[in-house]
Design a protein around this nucleic acid. Structure first.
Length: 211
DNA sequence: GGGCCGATCAAG
DNA sequence: TTGATCGGCCCA
């Protein structure tokens, strides 16, 4: 598979909503130490505005030890632990210090599927839709953990590449974000229309409140 | 320090 | 529906 040049920092250092919309259809590549290449095509992302402007953002209340990568330059990976168990990954965007980021929520596996299944703990015959549909699954499938927090996405082993020029451009829809309690109604989630690779939409979060 | 709530996932 | 189980925040 041909990938072409990776996206550059100028791509990421723009308005986070613009970047998020354009990231749908891009390919995320992790080249493992073994030389093996894992490739996902992004089908679903969420934008989080920076400090002060987005109550749902980890950066909303300013820098902390966990979110400090968000306050650094654009084009780096922000990895955090979710619910004490899963790792989720973001791309830092915008001007340095704004702490905007795009959460990578789901992808279509393109290359290295056998390896991704192993990383996910799935049997060899598991459906490909189980590999990277959902942010925790996506990170696990690519072998990304907290140790990758702060890593650059501008060069190997971790890179993002524009959509293949041959392929028909993805039809990108926009809707509410998933799994958060605050500022749910902001349409900051971008996803490919009619895609089986997109994570299931759960309005206002997956956990139903007990009355 | 204690208690609660998440940008989640999978088993029952 | 629940449990796993961590960081951050709020309250004492």
């Amino acid at each position: 598979m041909r990938l072409g040049s990776p996206l550059r920092q100028s791509f990421f250092a723009r308005d986070v909503l613009t970047v998020a919309a354009e990231l749908v259809g891009c390919r995320l590549v992790h080249r493992l130490a073994s030389g093996e290449r894992l490739v996902l095509r992004l089908v679903e992302v969420e934008a989080y505005l920076g400090e002060g402007s987005d109550p749902a953002s980890h950066a909303h209340r300013g820098p902390t030890p966990r979110n400090r990568t968000m306050f650094g330059p654009a084009g780096r990976l922000y990895a955090y632990r979710s619910y004490g168990i899963h790792t989720c990954v973001n791309v830092v965007c915008g001007a340095r210090g704004t702490a905007a980021a795009v959460l990578l929520r789901a992808g279509e596996p393109l290359e290295g599927l056998a390896r991704m299944r192993r990383l996910r703990g799935l049997p060899d015959e598991a459906a490909p839709t189980l590999i990277a549909r959902g942010p925790g699954r996506l990170a696990q499938a690519l072998g990304l953990g907290l140790e990758h927090d702060g890593q650059s996405l501008l060069r190997s082993p971790l890179t993002l590449h524009p959509p293949a020029t041959r392929a028909s451009p993805a039809r990108v829809l926009r809707g509410p974000r998933v799994g958060i309690g605050r500022a749910v109604n902001r349409p900051h989630r971008f996803f490919e229309a009619d895609s089986r690779w997109v994570s299931p939409y759960r309005p206002g979060g997956g956990r139903t409140r007990k009355s």
